[in-house]
Computed example of a mutant assay.
Amino acid sequence: MARIYTPAQFGGYAAIVSCAAVIASVSSLRLDSAIPVVPADDVSAISRLALILPVIVAPLALGAVALLPEEINQLKSSFADGAWLAIAIVAIMQGVTAVTNSLCTRRGDFVLAAFVKVVQPAAFAGIAWLLVRDLSVALATSWIVALLVGTRAFRGLGLVSGWRDSIDACRRAWRYPVFFAPVSLLDTLTQALPLLAIVSIFGTAGGGNYSQVQRLIGAPLMLVGLAVGQVFLKHAGDLIRASTPLTPLFLRVFRNLVILACLTVVVIVFVGDWALAVFLGHGWRTDTMFLILVILPVVFRTIVSPMSSVFLLYGRIGLVALWQVSYFVVTALAVFLGRSGASLDYLLATLVCSEFMMYLTYFLLAYFLVRRVDRYQLGLK
Rank of each mutant, 00 (worst) to 15 (best):
T204A: 07
Y176G: 02
L378V: 08
D32V: 02
S211N: 08
F115D: 05
I198G: 01
P306D: 13
G237K: 01
L186A: 06
L233Y: 03
P36N: 02
I259N: 01
L344H: 02
T350H: 08
R285C: 04
S211R: 00
T247F: 07
V37H: 00
F115K: 13
L103T: 10
G203Q: 08
A153I: 10
A205R: 05
L337S: 03
L365M: 14
A261L: 05
L246V: 13
A342L: 11
L226M: 13
L103Q: 09
D374K: 00
A2V: 02
L75S: 04
I201P: 00
R133Q: 13
P194V: 15
V224M: 14
M222H: 11
Y210P: 12
V224H: 08
G315A: 03
R171K: 14
V352E: 05
V325Y: 13
S354E: 15
S309F: 11
I127M: 13
V224I: 15
G281A: 01
N256H: 13
V199A: 07
V335Y: 06
R375C: 13
L185F: 11
L344F: 01
M289C: 04
S27W: 10
S77V: 15
P220R: 01
S136M: 10
V178M: 09
I72L: 06
S308T: 15
V294W: 02
W129P: 03
L185T: 07
S243N: 09
S78Q: 15
Y376I: 12
A91C: 05
H235M: 07
L195C: 04
A113H: 01
K381F: 15
D109T: 09
I198T: 03
S102G: 07
E70R: 00
A181T: 04
Q120T: 09
A181K: 00
F115G: 05
M93A: 09
Y367A: 00
F250Y: 12
F328L: 14
R48V: 12
R215F: 15
V325P: 10
V213H: 14
V90L: 02
L195D: 06
A153E: 04
A205S: 12
M307D: 13
